[in-house]
């Protein structure tokens, strides 16, 4: 059974991985894209699903496509709906 990012949400992300690859702290990333550190933390933990605008800003910051950072897992959605 697929595991969702908390709360049964189908949105997963790899921000933590990309941060590690770029050797960035949550504070660094937050400052770079103009949000609070708590927002980055909440997104990483799956507590908050960012808007499209913020999702694009995060992926553009890491110079990758949005799908590489954010994954919409439809199987989780199916399991949750059942």
């Amino acid at each position: 059974m697929p595991v969702s990012m908390g709360n049964g949400r189908p949105m997963k992300n790899k921000i933590k991985v990309f941060r590690a690859m770029h050797d960035m702290t949550q504070e660094d990333l937050a400052r770079a894209i103009g949000v609070t550190r708590q927002t980055i933390l909440a997104i990483e933990k799956g507590k908050y699903v960012p808007s499209l605008d913020l999702a694009f800003r995060i992926s553009r910051h890491f110079q990758v496509n949005i799908e590489e950072v954010f994954v919409y897992d439809e199987t989780v959605l199916t399991v949750t709906a059942d």
């Binding site: 702290t25 949550q26 504070e27 708590q38 933390l41 909440a42 990483e44 933990k45 507590k47 908050y48």
Partner: peptide, 11 residues
Amino acid sequence: RKYGEWETDEE
């Protein structure tokens, strides 16, 4: 609380 205001992390 729901949107992770007081969440803590290892950092």
